[in-house]
Design a protein around this nucleic acid. Sequence first.
DNA 1: TGCTTAAGATACGGTCGCGTATCCAATTTG
DNA 2: CAAATTGGATACGCGACCGTATCTTAAGCA
Lengths: 218, 218
Amino acid sequence: MGVVPADAQRAESTRGARTGVVATRRRGDALLRAIFDAVFDQLRSAGYANLTMEGVAAAAGTGKTVLYRRWATKEDMIADALRHRLPSPGAVPLTGDVRADIHALLRCVQASFNSTRGTAFQLVSAEAGCDRPAVRQTIIDHVVEPCIQLIGEVLHRAAERGEIRPEAAGDLVAASGPAMLVQYSLIREPVVPDAFVAAVVDQIVLPLTTRSAGAEHG
Amino acid sequence: MGVVPADAQRAESTRGARTGVVATRRRGDALLRAIFDAVFDQLRSAGYANLTMEGVAAAAGTGKTVLYRRWATKEDMIADALRHRLPSPGAVPLTGDVRADIHALLRCVQASFNSTRGTAFQLVSAEAGCDRPAVRQTIIDHVVEPCIQLIGEVLHRAAERGEIRPEAAGDLVAASGPAMLVQYSLIREPVVPDAFVAAVVDQIVLPLTTRSAGAEHG
DNA sequence: TGCTTAAGATACGGTCGCGTATCCAATTTG
DNA sequence: CAAATTGGATACGCGACCGTATCTTAAGCA
């Protein structure tokens, strides 16, 4: 073996069957993109618990070798995939309009689901409370915390301008928007629709900021 | 082998080291409780992805045999553990007082975290968006949906009595409380403190129900 | 065109966990 | 106390996946 005509096998290789193309060999970014697609594909179909390097390699139409050349562990690979796909809340331009800014920041959280095929929070919580939270922290640090933080700042400045009631500029209100999106992704379906984001802004976050609301509670 | 004195080994068995007791053999419910403790222990320390039957057996001070006598698969075992440990929202007595009832129902969601060592939502989302959500559905069906449902009814009746604004009796407001608790458990720490539940009631849910709130939005 | 780099197939030993079978001993039952 | 039951310890074959090594060949570059 090894002396057999290799081209015969090559003709019906896995990759050919997947793309339908005559097996053009990918490199660099194109390959990387295919791998990341495969990662989220696998997360979605098999779940985090059952994701394997071999499965990802097969889904990407490549070999384990290629993966191990880039990442030492499964966690590294996933964390890297996230870093490439997750949006950056810090890059969201803020206008000063409370409604628009909160909406923009929540769409950022929404994008973190949709850009990862709805698996982002699956990842966060697959390791929740676990002793070694490897992947989990990537998402929290990269998207959720910054978004809550920025929403908090938006609220705080609005409160200083007197646009909203001062009590609304607290941690809980700032966290309410992201919480609703997470909830939706977990309970309903992985991908959060635009309409839901808008509904959260108008029926949850903004109502909490209006002048008279909640004065008698607390 | 097999003819060696078995008592010599028995003296320093795993179970003895764990309980400090002279290895009294458990049965029925006592054994079941030890197994469920071990399940949540393992979920917490190793995570859902790394939970194994052998690990649970070892942690419970028993053998795989005992587990397989009761459950066919890992998922069955975990689902059963949940069914035994999760609170029943339907059993919460409702008084008619909006604040008290919502508080009671949210404490039920809180209890679903704390009674499972904070692993309940870890489980929900470990399989979020996955093709075969085995364990996930148990928690959603058993606690989260009923709680949201009941909160919705409480709000609805309060709206009919004119105690809260009618728009607040919608799905989003009903879901906001549980969403905040899930968020906390995932982002901050697995176990949700009492004070946080109270803060959610008074700073999020109730403010959303007050008369004037949010009239101009949406 | 020839050289260098990296893709991708394949094979391999090793480990881990699965699920079963087997046997022994502790409880419970009558 | 004898019988029936169930807990508990191994042992074992099996398959999946890991991580590495090897080799061929396509892609990019000078």
